[in-house]
């Protein structure tokens, strides 16, 4: 593995991301929604002249849950499949670089691009709150930054898996959107329904829920922003019993396992497909 090739290709990937219409739309949407939320937070803090983490600020978790995985999954899903479709991947492979270098650079480039979009959205929103309110509630965005980055990267890795097995960009995008719906909505609705219909122990429900990296993110965010696992009812108390102070790290661990597992799987699949 040559770090110079990886660096060169990462730079190219970043530059391509800046030219990518999808990426620009996501970054802009993320920024606009974050600033709108910042305005709402400032507005709600104005009611009684104090700020904090309340119903409005909780919307940040929803916002991130909505957009970051969409960004990660669809950008990831397009990544290899688009290059394959255009023939650029085969062309690059005929150069003195390895698939591993191309793969790593693509992942790094997109991960940096996503991180940039998130960082810009959060930092401008923080400054906006500062400007509007003089500081009340200003910390909310940045406190969620590390988890949001991790979520973006994890879903990017899952997107890469989709990309590694898809021939056409369109079908990869379709699968990406379905995966997004599944992870963000349908899985939860299913678990909620199941837990009402049949008796699932709080421990089992917790396990089934945090297997989903988006749910791990959500619960970790609640811990990070609110530091009260009791909000999560019986399953939250089980988490406290099982993991205690390590709960946050367990959830982060789930996301890291997904991130590394999906990245490796995507690489193995891409390798099998490209180099067979």
């Amino acid at each position: 593995m040559s770090s110079r090739s990886v660096l060169t290709l990462t730079q190219r990937e970043l530059l391509d991301a800046l030219r990518n219409r999808w990426f620009i739309v996501y970054a802009a949407a993320f920024l606009v929604l974050c600033i709108s939320l910042a305005a709402m937070i400032v507005n709600s803090a104005g009611y009684a002249g104090i700020s904090g983490f309340g119903r409005t600020a909780a919307g940040l978790i929803n916002l991130v849950l909505f957009l970051a995985p969409l960004m990660g999954l669809t950008l990831g899903a397009q990544s290899l499949s688009a290059e394959r479709e255009q023939g650029t991947l085969a062309y690059l492979l005929a150069q003195p670089v390895s698939l591993g270098e191309i793969f790593l650079a693509k992942f790094l480039g997109l991960a940096i691009a996503i991180a940039g979009a998130i960082a810009i959205g959060f930092s401008i929103s923080s400054l906006a709150i500062m400007y509007w309110s003089g500081g009340a509630g200003v910390g909310i965005f940045l406190r969620l930054l590390p988890l949001t980055l991790l979520l973006g990267w994890t879903t990017l890795a899952i997107g890469f898996v989709i990309s590694a097995v898809s021939d056409k960009t369109v079908s990869a995008l379709g699968i990406g959107v379905v995966a997004w719906l599944l992870l963000v909505l349908i899985g939860d609705l299913g678990l909620m329904g199941a837990s009402v219909a049949v008796s699932i122990s709080p421990g089992m429900l917790l396990t089934l829920t945090i297997v989903n990296p988006l749910e791990s993110f959500r619960i970790a965010s609640i811990l990070q922003l609110r530091n009260s696992i009791e909000l999560l009812g019986p399953s939250g108390l089980v988490a406290n019993d099982r993991f205690g102070d390590l709960t946050l790290w367990v959830l982060v661990g789930v996301m890291i396992v997904w991130l590394t597992g999906a990245t490796m799987l995507a690489y193995v699949l891409a390798r099998r497909r490209e180099l067979q």
């Binding site: 290709l9 190219r12 030219r19 023939g87 085969a90 062309y91 150069q95 003195p96 670089v97």
Partner: peptide
């Protein structure tokens, strides 16, 4: 190749990229 793939970047950047990859 049979067809030069439709890379997004301009020609100069492509030359730059491949030059760097080939050292």
């Amino acid at each position: 190749p049979q067809v030069m793939p439709l890379f997004d970047p301009p020609v100069g950047e492509m030359v730059d990229l491949i030059s760097r990859l080939r050292g």
